[in-house]
Design a binder for these strands. Structure first.
Length: 576
RNA sequence: CGGGGCGUAGCGCAGCCCGGUAGCGCGCUUGGUUUGGGACCAAGAUGUCGGAGGUUCGAAUCCUCUCGCCCCGACCA
């Protein structure tokens, strides 16, 4: 590609609403332009990156035996009503009407459509298994689109769906996909980790997420450095403490803690460690009707722990946090001083850690006061059985659930997700086949997603420096930039640059020749900003010595090489 | 949804408090000089001041409504 024939549009300053580096750099490098909140145009340079990611994904999916098709983005509501998701999905699902007032959705995912295709096409176990995938634009009307292409509303996704005659075969395909995803992210040149995950709203059993490791990631990952355990914090189990609850040694005492609302402030004020604090989180359980006992509930956590809303929902059902007025009405006290002692008609749940605590501190249900030396069984009813559970997020230092060490935490960007859906959709959508006995049976299904556009953002989060993007070779918009100094003025420079361009292009290298009438500084800055991994500079200065310069995007300095060797040097660097 | 913030030239911003008819940097155009790290000089072009309504002799500035965008939402609970 000759730069003069292409479209390069870089910015010195990033638009003010770009929050994270990858978003800023994508805007500055001219990879994307915003059209509306969470909706972007892929500019020519960005599209080259997107296409390279896509090509690798496609190649590996094909290699794994999946078959590509392309489904409609706009889908009739009937299918979604049939699966039940028309009601289940919230405002995230973009719904629209056609001119006949018929309901449609813009597909956020395609389980319904693919299941419909398969139930019409496949009748016999002899036609199974099958794995179909597509690479297509999806739309999810996110509450808060942000971080550019990372959490956009419109995004490019590879989604694959496999259909099987039995669970064992689904499990086989699931592990094939686990390997395939590992190959894909490795080829993309990303640092990533596969982690056990919550199955979320799609439902089903058995699920792994693939995360690109980056501090700006939206997900917290718990992993064990001494074993292969890794899980999304949403899922990672906090084991019950090994030691039994200590016996009470103190009498319960009410102490004034004026203005001390946060656990850490109370702990500091009382001169105690925060591990002696218990906080009570007031929730309203939607599943329990108004007026019934247990609708208003307290969940007890140790002062330094956080509530895990996903675990909590699995234990107590749908819930929301109680409003201040509701708390005041039930407990006669403003939040900050509420606690589990001396309350009636309030369900009390305790995290495992709390259940093993003695002589703890909690709110006194009296503004400005806490209780110290509190003990279960003596000062308040013991919490037992189903009321004790794992309600909290794991923290660094917790024992690993596999018993092989202690957990550490890191952050990741979810770029892939594989699920065993089982028969969730095949049953509701009546996607059956005839088994060997001639009996109809619902198909076992798996589903496998990759956030193609998100990968571009994630790769930049992982690869950038003060000068801009540092793309992995596999997805850089160009592999090599030839920067001629004085292309318009010097015939020698022009000839040499053209010759190199032809020769390296012929060698299969994706090279851009900067034949624009720009100053050298501008050219250098552009190719650094856009993350081109390799650069060759041709100038009269070097030509006089019969030499050119090579510099890798990560290199601190250029190396000079004789013209006769520059092609082999570049081939070595680019392909090596 | 709740809370906060911001909408002024393509981008980044000032001006608003204290009303008097819009400015800076980058970018863009033309000419000249430059040419190995985002050049310099000169001359230019570009604004429904997000939109609507109101107050006023006069509104970017004050008031009301509206739209768009950004940020934050258990630590209390």
């Amino acid at each position: 590609m000759r730069a003069s024939q292409f479209f390069i549009s870089t910015l010195k300053e990033a638009p003010a609403d770009a929050e994270i580096v990858s978003h800023q750099l994508m805007l500055r490098a001219g990879l994307i332009r915003r059209l509306a909140g969470g909706i972007y145009t892929w500019m020519p340079l960005g599209l080259r990156v997107l296409r390279k990611v896509e090509a690798i994904v496609r190649e590996e999916m094909n290699r794994a035996g999946a078959i590509e098709l392309l489904m409609p983005a706009v889908q009739p509501a009937e299918l979604w009503q049939e699966s039940g998701r028309w009601e289940q999905y919230g405002p995230e699902l973009l719904r629209l009407k056609d001119r006949h007032q018929r309901d449609f959705v813009v597909g956020p995912t395609h389980e319904e459509v693919i299941t419909d295709v398969v139930r019409r096409e496949i009748r016999s176990y002899r036609q199974l298994p099958r794995h179909f995938y597509q690479i297509q634009t999806k739309f999810r009307d996110e509450i808060r689109p942000r971080f550019g292409v990372m959490r956009g509303r419109e995004f490019l996704m590879k989604d694959g769906y496999s259909f099987h005659a039995g669970f064992a075969d689904l499990q086989r395909e699931y592990s094939v996909m686990h390997e395939t995803y590992t190959r894909i992210f490795t080829r993309l040149g990303l640092q990533f980790r596969a982690v056990a995950a919550d199955t979320g709203s799609i439902g089903g059993t058995g699920s792994h997420e693939f995360h690109v490791l980056a501090d700006s990631g939206e997900d917290a990952i718990a992993f064990c450095p001494t074993s292969d355990y890794a899980a999304n914090v949403e899922l990672a189990e906090a084991l019950a403490p090994m030691s039994a609850r200590p016996a009470a040694t103190q009498a319960m005492k009410e102490v004034a803690t004026p203005g001390k609302i946060k656990c850490e402030d109370v702990a500091e004020f009382l001169g105690l460690r925060i591990e002696k604090m218990v906080k009570a989180i007031a929730v309203i359980r939607d599943g329990i009707p108004e007026g019934e006992p247990g609708r208003f509930a307290l969940i007890l956590l140790r002062g330094d722990h956080d509530l895990n809303e996903i675990k909590t929902q699995k234990i107590i059902g749908h819930f929301r946090f109680a409003r201040e007025d509701e708390i005041e009405e039930r407990l006669g006290c403003r939040p900050g001083y509420i606690g589990p002692v001396g309350i009636n008609h309030v369900a009390t749940f305790a995290d495992r850690t709390v259940a093993a605590m003695g002589d703890f501190v909690c709110g006194a249900n009296k503004p400005g006061f806490h209780l110290t030396g509190v003990n279960f069984g003596r000062d308040l009813p013991d919490v037992t059985g189903g009321n004790v559970a794992d309600f909290r997020n794991v923290v660094a230092g917790d024992p690993s659930p596999d018993g092989k060490g202690t957990l550490e935490l890191c952050r990741g960007i979810e770029v892939g997700h594989i699920f065993q859906l089982r028969t969730k959709y095949s049953e509701t959508l009546k996607c059956t086949f005839l088994n060997e006995a001639g009996q109809p049976q619902p198909m076992e299904m798996g589903c496998y997603g990759i956030g193609v556009s998100r990968i571009v953002g994630a790769a930049i989060e992982q690869g950038h420096d003060a000068r801009g993007i540092v793309f992995p070779r596999a997805i850089a918009p160009f592999e090599l930039a030839i920067v001629p100094v004085g292309y318009g003025k010097s015939a020698a420079v022009r000839e040499e640059a053209n010759r190199l361009y032809d020769e390296l292009s012929a060698a299969g290298i994706d090279v851009v020749l900067d034949d624009r009438d720009e100053r050298p500084g501008v050219m250098f800055a552009d190719w650094e900003l856009t993350g081109i991994p390799h650069r060759v500079v041709i100038g009269e200065r070097g030509l006089k010595e019969g030499a050119a310069e090579y510099q890798g995007r990560r290199d601190a300095n250029a190396t000079t090489a004789p013209l006769s060797e520059i092609v082999s040097l570049v081939r070595l660097k680019v392909c090596g």
